[in-house]
């Protein structure tokens, strides 16, 4: 029972790291980016390829799993996304679906359609006892890493100069620009960091979520659910939503396997009926 809870929390935390970039672009900047999973996939593939082809240790690949998608994200933001911030939501949906299709087939073409497998280092395998509850070492590792990331992100958003500039730019672009804040640069940086975090999440998630070319399509819905349920005020809402989804999904698949993924969608629809703006809505 508690093991399921811990598994669920680890899963939820992973979902949050994957979706946190989307929480900012979609939640704060109001850009519907269905291609977010493509950046996560990039991170996952970086780790898998570095480990399997060049024998780089798991932990050493993680910085690259962050940097490569981050650079790709920065490039894509400057060349493509920046043109679409002011366009209709339909345009954004079409554009990002197009990107997903391209990412899925390009990955299939380059690396084949099979699952990418990685061998975790020995000290992350197996289980240990925590007050008598067996806990997977990798799950515990995920919880620790993701907690650090969550707290770090929250501090950056709320306590630093960059964070307040970002919030200002999101709330009112024109006024922020008038105050001398470099809105374009801030958006590009944020997008890059979001993509990098997605990549990191993808790399951390290979063991749990798997990694194959259809990853962006398969998990797109989960990311979107986390952000829409979470609401669009900050990172706390999506974090709670990710935990609910994580625990709900793991528990659902364990106790009522015949229902399967059904539960998650039902949960989302019910939450959206009760709170259309998400769990934590902007006070107006």
């Amino acid at each position: 029972m508690l093991t399921i809870l811990i598994d669920g929390i680890a899963y939820g935390m992973l979902l949050f790291v994957l979706a946190s970039g989307l929480a900012v672009t979609l939640g704060l900047m109001n850009f519907i980016n269905l291609a977010h999973g493509a950046f996560a996939m990039a991170g996952g593939y970086v780790t898998a390829l570095l480990m399997n082809r060049w024998g780089v240790p798991f932990l050493a690949t993680l910085p690259f799993a962050f940097l490569v998608p981050a650079l790709a994200g920065a490039f894509a933001e400057r060349t493509l996304y920046a043109r679409l911030y002011r366009r209709s939501h339909l345009d954004q949906v079409l554009f990002s679906i197009g990107l997903v299709f391209m990412a899925v087939t390009a990955t299939d073409y380059l690396f084949g359609s099979q699952q990418q497998l990685v061998q975790l280092p020995g000290w992350l395998q197996g289980r240990f006892d925590l007050f008598g509850i067996p806990v997977g070492r990798y799950r515990a590792f995920l919880i620790v890493v993701c907690s650090v990331l969550v707290i770090g992100l929250q501090l950056i958003l709320n306590r630093t100069r960059f964070g307040s500039q970002l919030r200002a730019a999101v709330d009112d672009q024109r006024v922020a620009r008038g105050l001398g804040i470099g809105v374009a640069g801030i958006f590009a940086t944020t997008f890059a960091v979001g993509s990098g975090l997605a990549g990191l999440g993808g790399a951390l998630g290979i063991e749990i979520l798997g990694m194959e070319p259809t990853f962006p399509l398969k998990f797109m819905v989960y990311f979107l659910i986390v952000v829409t349920i979470g609401g669009t005020t900050g990172l706390i809402g999506p974090f709670i939503a990710a935990l609910i989804i994580g625990v709900g999904d793991v528990a659902g698949k364990y106790y009522v396997p015949e229902v399967g993924a059904f539960l998650i969608y039902l949960l989302m629809i019910v939450i959206l009926i009760l709170r259309p703006q998400g769990l934590i809505a902007r006070a107006r």
């Binding site: 939501h89 829409t228 399967g260 629809i269 959206l272 703006q277």
Partner: peptide, 28 residues
């Protein structure tokens, strides 16, 4: 469900959610 303080995002998610729900239901 589409009329709930209808923002494009909520509509997208509700329609997508219902579609996924039926896919899973037909699968099971």
């Amino acid at each position: 469900l589409l009329l709930l303080r209808a923002s494009d995002l909520t509509r997208l998610m509700v329609t997508l959610g219902i579609a996924m729900l039926f896919y899973e239901a037909a699968n099971k």
